[in-house]
């Protein structure tokens, strides 16, 4: 469904992605893990058109996204829940959700989707007329996910949905993702919280300083000693002693 072929991207003179290839098949949940500055967010932004792809190609459902501007990509069925949630803080919760469907022309179906999402996430209905900035971090994360779902994506990409969340909220957000997985939504999940991500995912990639250094099924990655040491916090004793 989504294919990246040796993608290079960066900002100004800085090259962040140094040739990344990966793919996501329809119905799969794929996670991309890596530390700070590995290039995870840049990769998602390059796919969405927010950061230009310098070399290589991005293909989605048979379309070449490489030169397409960000505002055109969402209508192809690709949505991003950005890092740090980025809800429109002074706009109401309802307006945030409506903007998620900005490109859609089927107004009545949009209204029905809005109703359905508010039914699924009652907190959003409760706060519908409140400015989004007054929501708690976890509620904002739910809003950001719901806003992305309003575009009816075939592939939903999430950039660190666990960032800054209390454990209880984290569990709730991952419950939502698990539900999306069950309903057959394709997910590309970028995380620093490898434990949570690998539990949900089918497959995973490990990104380090702009290169994929490891890939495999979620189970394989969970067993990998390097992943365990660097991302799951296991086996420190062996390293230090």
């Amino acid at each position: 469904m989504l294919t990246l072929k040796s993608v290079q991207a960066g900002y100004g003179r800085l090259v962040v992605l140094k040739g990344v290839s990966l793919h996501v098949r329809a119905g799969e949940v794929v996670t991309l893990i890596g530390g700070n500055g590995a290039g995870k967010s840049t990769l998602l932004k390059a796919v969405c058109g927010l950061v230009p792809v310098r070399r290589g190609a991005v293909e989605f459902a048979g379309e070449d996204l490489t030169r397409l501007p960000a505002e055109r990509i969402v209508s192809l069925g690709l949505a991003l829940v950005p890092e740090g949630r980025r809800v429109f803080s002074s706009l109401s919760v309802a307006a945030n959700l409506e903007l998620g469907a900005f490109h859609r022309r089927d107004r009545q179906q949009v209204r029905r989707d809005l109703e359905e999402l508010m039914g699924r996430f009652p907190i959003l209905r409760e706060r519908a007329s409140q400015p989004a900035g007054t929501l708690s971090g976890g509620e904002q994360q739910i809003l950001a996910i719901a806003r992305a779902l309003m575009s009816r994506p075939r592939l939903l990409m999430l950039d660190e949905p666990s960032m800054g969340l209390a454990p209880k909220m984290l569990a709730q957000v991952y419950d939502i993702l698990a539900e999306l997985k069950r309903s057959g939504t394709t997910l590309l999940l970028v995380e620093q919280n490898a434990r949570a991500a690998l539990k949900l995912a089918d497959r995973g990639y490990v990104l380090e300083t702009g290169r994929i250094i490891l890939q495999g099924t979620a189970a394989e990655l969970q067993e990998d000693p390097e992943v365990q040491r660097a991302y799951l916090g296991k086996g420190y004793r062996e390293v230090w002693e």
Partner: peptide
């Protein structure tokens, strides 16, 4: 719709683009 889209652009241009604006 367009009024809210203008506000969205003023608040956060990149995220507005992600909405297809």
């Amino acid at each position: 719709r367009y009024g809210k889209a203008i506000i969205a652009c003023a608040l956060d241009r990149d995220t507005a683009r992600l909405m297809g604006i």
